[in-house]
């Protein structure tokens, strides 16, 4: 299992900063070979269409580099606002908090691994008998 990248956004980002985060993160995925990216937005009070697009872009770019992205900690008011605004963030996996996000990433990567291993007949220990 490859390492996870944990990104915590601590401030409301202005556009150029958000674009820098996007490119830095994609570079970091490529360099580290991370299979999972966890983005904690619990400190972000405003997600507008620009910020939403950046989050969606990061998830799509990570997918091209064979990494799964999970966004965690979205504030309830942000979720309400995003949906009314019309931004549903398709393709972005979410979890309630960091712990649940980690579990989701681990399970997704295990599933991906076992699919890869399946032809070799690898299986977990403990037969039905």
């Amino acid at each position: 299992m490859g390492p996870f990248l944990l990104v915590t956004i601590q401030v409301d980002l202005y556009d150029r900063l958000a674009l820098m985060l996007e490119s830095d993160l994609v570079q970091a995925i490529s360099k580290s070979g991370a299979q999972g990216v966890l983005i904690d937005i619990s400190a972000v009070s405003i997600v507008d269409s620009f910020m939403g697009r950046i989050i969606g872009n990061i998830a799509s770019m990570a997918r091209l580099l064979d990494a799964h992205t999970v966004v965690v900690g979205m504030q309830p008011a942000v979720a309400i606002t995003l949906i009314e605004l019309g931004l549903t963030l398709p393709g972005v996996q979410t979890a309630l908090n960091v712990e649940k996000g980690m579990q989701l990433l681990q399970s997704r990567i295990r599933v991906a691994d076992s699919e890869e291993d399946a032809p070799h007949g690898d299986d977990d220990a403990g037969s039905p008998e």
């Binding site: 405003i46 997600v47 507008d48 269409s49 620009f50 504030q75 008011a77 309400i80 606002t81």
Partner: peptide
């Protein structure tokens, strides 16, 4: 309240952009 604040600020952010 927080929800209305968030809606207002997000709307403002869109318009200012």
């Amino acid at each position: 309240g927080v929800v209305n604040q968030t809606k207002l600020i997000t709307a403002a952010s869109e318009l200012v952009r």
